[in-house]
């Protein structure tokens, strides 16, 4: 298998190195605003993944995999889901229903607990979505290269 071709386009590379941090930052912004505004895990996850995809297109699969290997993605995806279910189960442990954040004693009021609970869940979802999007991308790229 020949190495994945790396784009030598200087504009793409420079553009990417400027854009990627911004995209990631924006992704995190969207991620933590899920509870009170339009935003949340899905969108954030996709934005984050888009950032990495841009990075991959600019610097090549090999470089990208140094940062986020397929194995790591799997772990991230699992962790994200684990956070999600963990928060849900936490609610059950504290005597509520699944995902009934209000009962978790992390805020002053149930509403505040709810907010934190939702944030936690959104982070979980975000991580999972990002990891899955990225691994789909990797997969397709790999398949195209015949790997």
């Amino acid at each position: 298998m020949k190495a994945a071709p790396v784009s030598n386009d200087i504009i793409l590379r420079t553009g990417a190195s400027i854009m990627v941090p911004v995209i990631l930052l924006w992704g995190f912004y969207v991620l933590v605003h899920g509870a009170i505004g339009p935003g949340g895990g899905f969108q954030a996850g996709v934005i984050l993944a888009a950032g990495f995809i841009l990075y991959t297109t600019a610097f090549g699969l090999k470089e990208a995999k140094k940062i986020l290997s397929v194995k790591l993605l799997m772990v991230i995806a699992s962790t994200g889901l684990f956070i999600y279910t963990g928060v849900g189960v936490l609610a059950i442990i504290f005597g509520g229903n699944f995902l009934e954040y209000g009962v978790i004693p992390i805020g002053e009021t149930p509403a505040e607990a709810s907010k934190y609970g939702i944030e936690m869940v959104e982070i979980g979802i975000g991580l999972t979505v990002m990891a899955i999007m990225l691994s789909i991308f990797y997969d397709i790229v790999l398949k195209e290269k015949g790997g």
Binding site: F42, Q43, V129, M133, I140, K143, E144
Partner: peptide, 20 residues
């Protein structure tokens, strides 16, 4: 939003099938 996620996943599965 949920449906879009589903649609994207379907598309991803479809594309990888097409590659195969």
């Amino acid at each position: 939003l949920t449906a879009i996620v589903v649609a994207v996943s379907t598309l991803a599965v479809g594309l990888s099938l097409v590659i195969r």
